[in-house]
Design a protein around this nucleic acid. Structure first.
Length: 815
DNA sequence: GCTACTCGGGG
DNA sequence: GTGTACGAGTAGC
């Protein structure tokens, strides 16, 4: 057949009698979903010749290795000697080529255990290895030559004879299909074994036209044409399959669909014996065992939350990643307001009310779609830098992104990839928890007019300009270049692998920034962002205990240089009449005092002119007010614990405990109210009076029970618990009463008066008469801890908050 | 003090 | 899938 242009989206593999074949799923330039097969790529790993051992002899021995494991026998296809760089030295290694990817762990562990041979690169997943080795970057165009082959797939399949890069215009408009489910949930429990899915919504584009649909299995009157009725939950699941099959999306998009929607759908489908064989190779949807992603072969499942939380975290200002907050920040839109707690009632008794829930359901899918579309350029650019499939890239943390970026660069630099640390090594590294970054100790207090600047590109530029990497550390050829106040020096003659690749990230970014000065381009913005993200994460990677290229000395040297530079800025800020309020690692908080915002911006501009090369301090945000609190046991300022009030009326809370679902409403409410009263309305006295009132009301048992209920999720079978916490004790009581509880159930409980451990005083909310909770427990464990440190700033102790009769103090305050 | 367990996101 | 998240918090022991 004629050569054609192809955009790979995802890769998988199959074993044939002749060996492994890589299957690349994607879309052709003409818009057809296709699969490309490459049967020419063999799995391999490396082995080091032990000292005193003859290389040729070892080569022969390895070639003859056969390892039996269950039904499979793994044999070696060939062994060749190659030169590699490893930690700054040249070494000779044997490249051991196999037939079957599954043979790699088997054969390599045989080599290390039975033959005393050290092995490398034995845990690089086969499909990832293929992409990186062949330089095939998902979402980029390739010219494919080959012939049709009769594979049994849902899409045409071409056996490739050649796959060549075809330009640098990435796949721009994937066919996205977003979806969302609503479930029956009479309590706040999420119990897929127990309760059905009530509706599923879809949103996407179909030949340039909006595609929207909500499927539900209770009938009601409606004008909305997009609402479709079926007769049962089983039919609903069948329709879910059909819609996806018919729509043929490149990417199926959800919000927390790794952890909620798809696992729920899978559990329900299993109940009805419905096969979710949506894979383009007819394979079933599957959840990886670590709970880290649900995949469908050939369709990229994008859990957009994953990408936002892992990667966009640095750009987003929101503290919470619920759909409403994120949509608000990125799209300027909110979720529809409905009372979800009443959905089950409407489902059982008031069908006419279901329409608004369908509208709500669809709107969530629309928001999810719009979020995916919005961040797609960012995903694309990150995929391009890291070189892995979008499915993997969106689920990776910074440390993994850096690691895979480095792995993708090893081929060009002929570097041997270091092994992951063994368990004991990780334990050892954890002990040396990193205390290198400079954190300016804030003085506790309430502050106004705070300018926050970000200093992050300082670190990557230190790495490149001081050549800081594991392979250049402590070289024997030169001793001159020591990091300030450390005993570490780095080679000044030979460029290190990591400093080199970081350097290329920085210079690529600088070129892009030059172009962006001339004209704006969302694609280039996203590319610049991706390059910055990776460069900025390299320092943290050096200190990350799981890193292959772990180097604590490197991380310490980076921060040593960082301190050197940041102290210059702090001194300069003082000279220019600004007060430095706080600084943590990469950010610096300045107080405007009598100066204007423009003055601060001008000051930073001046700093940037003085800083070498790419180093830059950039404006992050202006906050009208903020509070820094002392540590628990002293009056000195706590690091990483503060709250800022933004111009948009939102609180940015860092390091404060609480505000999680296992806290009672009263604790959350009091914290929020106190922070707002202090930071927004500037009325600390009113905040104090408010807390005293709450404490008083608790003692009078006037706070309704619903506000003291806390919930905790049961993670496993009751009998499997070693440590019986309050929620486990209550779950036991619930089961004794015949209430359905199991793994996943959300257990609500109230602490009542009495003696013994907490679990002896925990009760099912229904068992507790109104007001019969343990007031002292809620005062000292929920209310006071939530606001304690805030009041310490105002000169009020924990005891004063808890005290029963405190009118004198109150009077003092108001006088 | 150490170990076990939970949260996030989702209805 | 040539795998098995993570970092921070609370309660129990």
């Amino acid at each position: 057949m004629d050569p054609f242009i192809f955009y790979p989206l995802d890769a998988t593999y199959r074993m044939e009698s002749s060996g492994a074949s890589i299957l690349l799923f994607g879309r052709s330039a003409s818009g057809e979903q296709v699969c490309i097969v490459d049967d020419q790529f063999a799995p391999y790993f490396y082995a080091i010749v032990p000292k005193g051992k003859n290389r040729d002899k070892l080569q022969e021995e390895i070639t003859a290795v056969r390892v039996k494991e269950e039904e499979n026998e793994y044999t070696v296809r060939g062994v060749t000697a190659v030169q590699k760089n490893y930690q700054g030295v040249d070494i000779e290694v044997l490249r051991v080529v196999l037939h079957n990817p599954k043979g790699v762990p088997a054969v390599s562990s045989f080599l290390s255990k039975e033959m005393g041979v050290k092995t490398f690169e034995t845990d690089i997943l086969y499909t990832r290895r293929f992409l990186v080795d062949k330089g095939i970057v998902p979402l980029m165009p390739y010219e494919v030559e080959g012939t049709h082959t009769p594979y049994s797939l849902r899409v045409p399949c071409i056996s490739a004879t050649s796959i060549k890069p075809a330009g640098d215009e990435a796949f721009k408009h994937p066919n996205l299909l977003s979806f969302d489910i609503e479930t029956y949930s009479p309590t706040r429990s999420i119990a897929p074994e127990q309760y059905p899915i009530l509706m599923i919504s879809f949103y996407g584009m179909d030949n340039g036209k909006q595609f929207k649909k909500v499927i539900t299995w209770k009938h009601f009157k409606t004008e909305h044409e997009y609402i479709e009725f079926v007769n049962s939950e089983a039919d609903l699941l069948q329709r879910f399959k059909e819609v996806v099959e018919k729509h043929k999306p490149d990417m199926l998009v959800g919000y927390y669909s790794d952890g909620f929607d798809l696992p729920y759908i899978m559990t329900r489908a299993k109940k009805y014996d419905i096969k979710l064989d949506l894979g383009l190779d007819f394979s079933e949807m599957k959840a990886s065992r670590g709970g880290n992603g649900v995949s469908i072969t050939g369709i990229v499942h994008l859990d957009i939350l994953s990408f936002l939380r892992n990667v966009m975290r640095t750009t987003l200002k929101t503290d919470s990643y619920d759909l409403d907050s994120v949509a608000q920040e990125l799209l300027g839109e909110h979720k529809k307001e409905v009372d979800l707690a009443k959905l089950h009632e409407a489902w059982d008794h008031q069908h006419e009310k279901l329409e608004e829930y369908c509208v709500y359901n669809l709107h969530d899918a629309v928001l999810t779609y719009n979020l995916a579309e919005k961040v797609f350029p960012n995903i694309t650019e990150l995929v391009k830098v890291v070189g892995l499939a979008p499915f993997d890239v969106i689920r990776m943390r910074f440390s993994q992104l850096v690691e895979w970026f480095l792995i993708s660069q090893t081929k060009e630099f002929n570097e041997l990839i270091p092994n992951k640390p063994a368990k004991e090594e990780v334990e050892e590294r954890r002990k040396h928890s990193f205390k290198g970054a400079f954190v300016f100790e804030p003085t506790p207090g309430i502050y106004y007019d705070i300018m926050v600047f970000d200093f992050r590109s300082l670190y990557p530029s230190i790495i490149t300009s001081h050549n800081i990497g594991p392979s250049t550390l402590g070289c024997s050829c030169c001793h001159a270049h020591k990091a300030p106040s450390t005993k570490y020096h780095f080679c000044t003659k030979k460029r290190g692998f990591i400093p080199s690749v970081v350097d290329s990230l920085i210079s690529r970014r600088m070129r892009i920034k030059e172009i962006l000065k001339e004209h704006s381009s969302p694609t280039l913005e996203a590319r610049s962002e991706a390059l910055k993200t990776l460069a900025n994460s390299t320092y943290g990677y050096y200190a990350f205990f799981g890193a292959r290229w772990y180097c604590l000395e490197c991380a310490q040297s980076v921060t040593a240089w960082g301190r050197h530079y940041i102290h210059e800025v702090i001194n300069d800020a003082g000279k220019h009449g600004f007060t430095v309020l706080y600084s943590d690692t990469d950010s610096i908080f300045l107080l405007l005092g009598t100066k204007k915002q423009e003055d601060a911006l001008r000051f930073v501009e001046g700093i940037n002119k003085k800083l070498p090369g790419v180093m830059e301090l950039s404006f992050e945000e202006y906050y009208p007010s903020g509070i820094f609190v002392p540590t628990k046991d002293s009056d000195s300022g706590a690091k990483k614990k503060y709250a800022l009030y933004s111009r948009t009326g939102k609180l940015k809370i860092r390091g404060f405990e609480a505000v999680r679902r296992n806290w009672s409403v009263i604790g959350k409410e009091v914290q929020e109210e106190v922070l707002l009263t202090v930071l927004k309305y500037h009325e600390p006295k009113r905040a104090f009076a408010y807390v005293k009132q709450i404490v008083h009301d608790l003692r009078d048992h006037k706070i309704p029970n619903e506000k003291v209920v806390a919930t905790t999720q049961l993670q496993k079978e009751i009998s499997h618990y070693d440590a019986v916490g309050p929620h486990v004790a209550v779950a036991t009581r619930m089961r004794e009463k015949g209430l359905p509880v199991g793994p996943g159930s959300i257990i609500p409980f109230i602490i009542v008066e009495g003696s013994g451990r907490l679990r002896d005083k925990a009760r099912i909310p229904d068992e507790v008469d109104e007001g019969k909770y343990d007031a002292e427990y809620y005062i000292s464990n929920q209310v006071v801890p939530a606001v304690e440190s805030i009041f310490k700033v105002l000169g009020i102790s924990k005891e004063e908050l808890e005290e029963n009769k405190d009118q004198s103090k109150l009077a003092d305050w108001f006088s």
